[in-house]
Design a protein around this nucleic acid. Structure first.
Lengths: 148, 148
DNA sequence: TAGAATAGTTCTATTTTTGTAACCTTTTTT
DNA sequence: AAAAAAGGTTACAAAAATAGAACTATTCTA
């Protein structure tokens, strides 16, 4: 790919995140007493079923002590569970509790309503393009070796 | 758009941000002594030429005192300038200094290299799809009324 | 089995983010 | 001209994110 295109690509990558927030709002309301970091942890658990502390750290790109802190708070709130009992007893697997699942689902629903309102004005073909393009982006990101 | 598709769309929206970070790294290294918030402010200024404090607040979705704090630090570092002298003397326009421009450019270059390495393994048509899809997403987001 | 490596935690400390309330200045409204 | 509104700042306070170092427990390795 030519240089000019690469630059545009990187520019888009960098600007996408704040753009999402600015236009579609944050995926978790600030008043929910769940911190963004904790919510992202929950989202990962929502998609991955269960993850070890280290895996969570890698997913969220934060240090292990940080993961511990986040998970501890979520445990106190009853939103996630420590589920060890693995061949390797050092590893502690974390999974969402029923309450945690419900929380993510409910919040996603709220966010869905919020987003729906905001993108309603788009024509149906724009909406389609948005959906398809986003899926393409996601598919490609999921191929990245960093995700191993 | 049907319900199922909307759900998938929202799910993609929510998961894109952490996915970007996880796969492509953060756009600003943590050791750069520029905080993420400050860097996003600089990025906005890089694209918009000049912005008022309030506009920055809206762009970054943070409160005005927060903007003040961020901009103050950037001014001390000589990366942005206060440029008032507008019809409305209450308004303080912020713009990048030459140093600020250079900083963003240099950092973008670094990030470009980093990203380039990570997406090198993609086939050329995948890369093309990634680029086009991302541009589509951005274009649509830029149409959002929230941006006015 | 001793030593090295790995998974997590605890302790500690710092930086960052964040917003509310009160205030000043300038502009707009009435 | 007085009142209201808007742009910013200051002061204050409190969450949140973050990670290095040291430590425990477990597993792997030689």
């Amino acid at each position: 790919m030519e240089e000019r295109k690469m630059l545009a690509l990187v520019d888009n990558i960098i600007s996408i995140k704040p753009l999402f927030f600015k236009t579609l709002g944050k995926p978790i309301p600030m008043n929910s007493n769940i911190t963004p970091g904790a919510y992202y942890a929950m989202l990962n658990l929502f998609n991955c079923e269960s993850l070890s502390m280290s895996e969570l750290g890698k997913m969220l790109m934060i240090s292990k002590p940080n993961v511990t802190a986040i998970i501890n708070k979520l445990i106190v709130k009853g939103l996630v569970l420590r589920a060890s009992a693995k061949p390797d007893r050092r590893i502690i697997m974390i999974r969402l509790s029923a309450k945690g699942y419900k929380f993510v689902e409910t919040n996603n629903k709220k966010y869905l309503d919020q987003v729906t309102k905001k993108i309603m004005f788009l024509k149906d073909d724009e909406l389609e393009l948005f959906s398809v393009s986003l899926q393409n982006v996601k598919d490609i990101l999921l191929k990245m070796p960093t995700l191993r």
